[in-house]
């Protein structure tokens, strides 16, 4: 059940658009801000709130890879998975994450703290390899700096 705060935020957001349907991406983002991901029930409720079929909203939700339709950990690591990062050794970073957190792409740690996802591309090629942890961009990564970064995350 979407709480009152989420519903209020969605309603407020929908007012910015000439048709409620146009605000559906923002609505999904609001849910995700609060719940980390969009569950089946949340999807249905958002669809009802906007007044569109759940199937149509699902089409939007599954189109965007940053709308999560499966549970994710507290911190989502988006490791850049593109040419510049390949050239500068992002494989080592991926291996480092795997070693430290025991997760690969698409997986979440047992304690629900981290989810690792590939991302093409973060647009930060001059500082490859790069990754984002939550909202924070980390660049010029090395196995050592990776350790530091992950330790610094609560």
């Amino acid at each position: 059940m979407l709480n009152d705060q989420v519903q209020k935020e969605i309603r407020g957001e929908l007012e910015h658009y000439p048709t409620p349907r146009a605000g559906c991406i923002e609505a999904l983002k609001i849910v995700q801000n609060h719940e980390r991901w969009v569950s089946d029930t949340a999807l249905q409720e958002v669809a009802d709130l906007i007044g569109i079929p759940a199937a149509e909203l699902e089409g939007v939700a599954t189109f965007y890879n940053l709308i999560y339709r499966q549970p994710v950990g507290k911190h989502v690591i988006l490791l850049c998975d593109s040419v510049s990062c390949w050239l500068t050794g992002c494989g080592k970073i991926r291996a480092g994450i795997k070693q430290r957190l025991n997760i690969d792409f698409g997986q979440t740690t047992a304690d629900d703290r981290f989810t690792l996802l590939p991302m093409a591309c973060l647009g930060n090629c001059d500082h490859a390899p790069s990754m984002m942890v939550g909202e924070v961009l980390h660049q010029d990564l090395t196995p050592e700096s990776l350790d530091q970064i992950l330790e610094g995350v609560d």
Partner: peptide
């Protein structure tokens, strides 16, 4: 189904190689 016949329960999901046409469930 959706645009012409006004159906509500068939749509396109996902992207790329994962494109899927069906019901939400």
């Amino acid at each position: 189904y959706r645009d012409y016949a006004g159906g509500k329960d068939l749509d396109a999901f996902g992207v790329h190689d994962r494109m899927y046409f069906g019901r939400q469930e």
